[in-house]
Amino acid sequence: MTQTSSETSGEPGNADSLEIQRSPEFAALRRSLRVFVFPATVVFLLWYALYVVLSAYARDFMGVKVFGEINVALIFGLLQFVSTFLIAWLYSRYAAKNLDPKAEAIKEHMENGSPKSAAGNGSEDEA
């Protein structure tokens, strides 16, 4: 019954949140987040799935020796480590550059109510 009465929770109320959610700045932040994390998730899950499926169904291929006793299975496994480190590093760079400034500007705007940063920030990422 009460969960629709939004203004009771203090903090930024629902009305504010709705307004922010519809703002172009927030849309840009959401787009920046999703444009990285969704494709990256698809890529690493498929890459991992490929590794697991090959381990199950392509044993001959996985057993091919590349140099010394080092075979494809081992290299493929080590590449999963490399790709994990790489995606983590790319994301941290991307987030620091493309997410943090946008998020902080919106947060600042909400907490101080200063409309100062609201105008300039949204448009730069429209392209």
């Binding site: 939004s6 109320g13 709705l18 959401r30």
Partner: peptide, 10 residues
Amino acid sequence: AELEVRSLTG
């Protein structure tokens, strides 16, 4: 809206 704004901006 509250959850989304909070989760993305803090």
